[in-house]
Design a protein around this nucleic acid. Structure first.
Length: 879
RNA sequence: GGGCGGAUAGCUCAGUCGGUCAGAGCGUCUCGCUUACACCGAGAAAGUCGGGGGUUCGAGUCCCUCUCCGCCCACCA
């Protein structure tokens, strides 16, 4: 075995082995209980980022844990076509090449898209494989697969026929760059500082009214002025008309409760064609809608040639100047507000009127709300339940049409006689009148419409396949906070609508990884971290262990590379303790493998063996509880601590002498059995977190299985926690406390902390183990030689640690231990005082729980014993 | 404007029912290349738990309030 763990030599071997074993492939016909998760399909817009690594690692912890616990685990991978995002990426690429999608044409563009998906889709899947994710690669899906397309059309047609999908002119968030509508959830709000201007509109019947706006250019499309009905300032003006400057249009003043009296001047110009609130007001008052901005984001006002064709920003300046010239500008001031941007391309959105397809959400949301309220779908951390419910309760209709090239065509046609119908297989003629003159709807669907069907579409729906029957509903979803509305909520709604059951019962929101300076990671800032780079640097196990340790708090987490490297060292530690056991216990034939020590009788076990078994039992219980609560960081920390500090630093150190060739055979076999058993249990517990190193180590154990994934999850026999074991556990803990105190005292006495000179040591207390045993264990952990009598010519340094005390002897340096003992006595005294005060308080003894009071009593008696011992030693000095 | 989250050692973070909860890793300092591991070991220093009030026998933990960060939602133009 190599002296240090080399992840890059080991990882490919295991990836191949798992593949050969088909470890991740689920059997739809097995009689095991199933456990199902769908991996959130990454967008094929580039490479993986740290978020994918965290999300996937968290899921793989569960997948491997459940597999070892006897579940038929289906963890389904796939990728998403991400229409707008991908189209933007490719268009940008074309622009760099001096080309464009228009130049390529539809077919040429599609070719380009297919190439892109083939190249990057494959790359993303390979990256996830490199992370060791035990996904079911045999069921890899893509949202553009023919079967998947069928699912989308089936869902669309069902909702359409039910009347839940409709088409209509509404004000939408329009992205002039993507040339498409987007949904409310795809808006990226950013703070802008603009000028708020007040304009004086003359009232036809005399006087005027001053309105406030940050978008003066839209006044060209004003069709009214609105004030609050209860506003005394304007009550007399309601019903009158203003003459709109620049255009000369005569528009009414209306009263609408949607107007905020306290904002601006309390009077609002109504531009229904370019503002959502104004659109609503216009609807309520029957005001006409005028469009002044075209789909490309330029002014569309042919009757005003001085503005026609200008971009919105230029028009803003030009119109404002014209208004100034006309003398209607009353005031201009800076104003900070939120402006919507396209979250795919960053362009400022333009609210405008267009014909779009919509889904009526309310009837779909109701069952989704109930599912959460009744605890059938729960979010972790808990607070996300409220986030989900608030959105669901205020849900609005969903704009699902997009005016782009890439994506799923809306499966609707209109015939020459005006009949419109949805279809699953595109028909040759109109089902109503037989007309063959069919017009295919030009729009495509919002990508999230297809994603919303993921949990059942991947299993073959609408076919009633074996997979669908077996793997729906699933169990757990692990995903990022930012897509709770875009994706999670919609999956719940479609699952309930089309399958009659929620797609999962637990939703784990994983942490968001921020850059080291606390800012968001983003490609534009160039501060993203590629997980593959981290794997190259530290190994996949280290990246995954880190992900497990930080992934489930659901909170923001600053990226900390040092923390990843600490898990690389941990892997190396584990590797080396395995290597140690192999060299000590290797079988003769094959020096790379540990020999089977055979059965061991419990009565042959030494106290430290039982101490270790007791720790193991605790660790298994702690891991189980942590994993069941999705507190993976607890499990990871616990394993790190038990493996490094209990097993390596303590147990193996205490057992080294017994593991030598020349040790007593019975004792040696007991130590070997305990060490091997411990390592075996710990490797199995750790496997979901660090699959590669654990597999590689486990291969060295006697009777190793081809993969840990085929092993059972560890359980512990009752006797690992019985009375004898508990007693041994306490006694050995006490020895360790004594050792620590001895080392500190020795250093204080002037012996370098790391000196290997073995000082003589007189063990004064017997403890539960007896003199000889305590002496043996102390010698195993620290550089002391236990003696029977006080050696001559050396200075005694007395040490008291809880229930134990000993005297060590250092060179005649004249070290004085009374100062230290006095200080210890003082500390014990204050501890006693505090405990006595607490126990003397009736409020405490009466109201605190019994075990807490008992604990305090125990601590007090321990402290009293320690004080007595200290006083005794110091009293001898005085005498 | 409403809501949520965070503020704990120099740094990154744990801390569940209020009762050994003042913790880990990294970093720093001392000392040691002890044949598993220097990707290591032994030890040490280091925190008014953001500020202020309150509840309680007892508060990092519960309540109120303030400050500073971050996020989500929202039709104040």
């Amino acid at each position: 075995m190599d002296k240090s763990f080399d992840p890059h030599a080991v990882e490919p071997r295991w990836l191949e082995r798992w593949e050969q074993l088909g470890a991740g492939i689920a059997d739809a016909h097995s009689d095991k209980p199933s456990f199902v998760m769908a991996l959130p399909p990454p967008n094929i817009t580039g490479a993986l980022h740290m978020g994918h690594a965290v999300m996937g690692s968290v899921q793989d912890i569960l997948a491997r844990n459940r597999r070892m616990r006897g579940f038929e685990v289906e963890w389904a991978p796939g990728t998403d076509h991400a229409a707008i995002a991908t189209q933007n990426v490719i268009e940008r690429q074309l622009a760099v090449e001096g080309s464009s999608k228009e130049e390529l044409g539809r077919a040429g563009f599609q070719l380009r898209v297919d190439q892109w998906y083939a190249e990057y889709g494959g790359r993303i899947l390979r990256q996830m494989r490199a992370l060791g994710f035990s996904l079911d690669w045999s069921r890899t899906r893509f949202t553009l697969d023919p079967q998947y397309v069928r699912a989308i059309r089936t869902a669309f047609k069902a909702l359409y026929d039910e009347g839940l999908i409709y088409r209509g002119p509404r004000i939408v968030n329009w992205c002039p760059r993507c040339r498409s509508a987007i949904s409310d959830e795809e808006i990226d709000w950013q703070e802008h500082t603009d000028a708020m201007v007040q304009l004086r509109y003359p009232v036809e019947e005399g006087g005027d009214i001053v309105i406030a706006t940050v978008r003066p250019e839209t006044m060209l499309a004003d069709t009214g002025v609105a004030v609050h009905p209860d506003d005394p300032r304007y009550r007399d003006l309601v019903g009158k008309h203003v003459i709109l400057p620049l255009t000369g249009r005569r528009i009414p003043i209306v009263a609408d409760a949607g107007v905020e009296r306290d904002f601006g001047t309390g009077a609002l110009k109504v531009t229904p064609g370019h503002d959502p609130l104004d659109f609503d007001i216009a609807q309520r008052h029957g005001l006409p809608i005028i469009t002044a901005i075209a789909l490309d984001g330029t002014m569309d006002v042919p009757e005003l040639p001085q503005f026609h064709g200008l971009t919105v920003m230029r028009a803003r300046t030009a119109v404002l100047q014209a208004l100034r010239d006309a003398g209607v500008v009353v005031k201009e001031e800076e104003y900070v507000h939120e402006v919507g941007h396209c979250d795919r391309c960053g362009e400022v959105l333009e609210p405008l009127i267009s014909e779009q397809w919509w889904v009526t959400m309310r009837p779909l949301a109701e069952p989704g709300i109930a599912a959460n309220e009744q605890g059938r779908v729960r979010f972790h951390p808990r607070r996300f339940n409220d986030v989900y419910l608030r959105w669901m309760r205020n849900i609005r209709d969903w704009c699902i049409s997009r005016q782009i090239w890439l994506g799923h065509a809306i499966p609707v046609s209109t015939c020459g006689n005006g009949h419109r119908f949805a279809w699953i297989e595109e028909p040759a003629s109109c089902p109503e009148c037989g007309s063959t003159e069919l017009q295919h709807d030009p729009d495509v669907l919002d990508t999230w419409f297809s994603s919303a069907l993921w949990p059942f579409a991947i299993f073959g729906w609408p076919e009633q396949s074996d997979d669908l029957r077996r793997f729906y509903p699933g169990d757990v979803l692990v995903t990022a906070r930012e897509i709770i509305f875009l994706w999670v909520a919609r999956m719940i709604m479609t699952g309930l609508r089309f399958q009659g059951a929620e797609p999962f019962h637990d939703v784990i929101i994983n942490s968001t990884i921020l850059a080291a300076d606390g800012s968001r990671m983003s490609k534009s800032k160039g501060n993203t971290i590629d997980p593959v780079e981290m794997i190259e640097r530290y190994g996949a196990d280290a990246v995954r262990a880190w992900a497990g340790a930080v992934g489930t708090s659901g909170q923001d987490m600053r990226f900390d590379e040092d923390r990843i490297s600490s898990y690389q060292r941990f892997a190396n530690k584990l590797w080396n303790v395995t290597r140690f056991l192999v060299t000590r216990l290797g079988d003769g034939d094959d020096s790379d493998r540990i020999a089977d020590p055979g059965e061991v009788r419990p009565e042959d076990l030494a106290p430290e063996d039982r101490w270790m078994l007791s720790r193991l039992a605790e660790t298994v219980a702690a891991c189980d509880s942590a994993i069941e609560q999705y507190r993976f960081h607890d499990a990871m920390e616990r394993l790190y601590d038990t493996i490094w500090h209990s097993f390596c630093d303590r147990y193996v150190e205490m057992s080294k002498a017994r593991l030598r060739d020349d040790a007593d055979p019975t004792s040696r076999r007991a130590a070997a059995w305990t060490a091997i058993t411990s390592l075996d249990v710990l490797l199995r517990l750790l496997h979901p977190f660090m699959p590669f190193i654990t597999e590689e180590s486990a291969q060295r154990l006697p009777g190793a299985a081809p993969s840990l994934q085929l092993r059972e999850w560890p359980t512990t026999p009752q006797w690992w926690q019985d009375e004898t074991t508990q007693a041994a556990r306490a006694a050995v803990d006490e020895v360790q406390d004594l050792v620590q105190a001895l080392r500190a005292a020795r250093q204080e006495a002037g012996v370098p902390a790391a000196s290997r000179d073995r000082q003589p040591l007189l063990v004064d207390s017997d403890g539960a183990l007896g003199h000889a045993e305590v002496g043996r264990l102390v010698e195993s952990l620290a550089p002391f030689t236990v003696v029977d009598s006080e050696p001559a010519g050396m200075t005694a340094v007395r040490v008291v640690a809880g229930g134990a005390h000993a005297t060590l002897y250092v060179g005649a340096a004249g070290a004085d231990d009374t100062g230290r003992l006095r200080k210890q006595l003082d500390d014990t005294g204050t501890r006693i005082q505090r405990l006595q005060a607490q126990l003397g308080n009736a409020g405490f003894t009466d109201r605190a729980p019994h075990d807490v009071v008992e604990q305090a009593r125990t601590r007090l008696s321990e402290a009293l014993a320690e004080r007595a011992r200290l006083q005794q030693l110091l009293g001898e000095d005085a005498a």
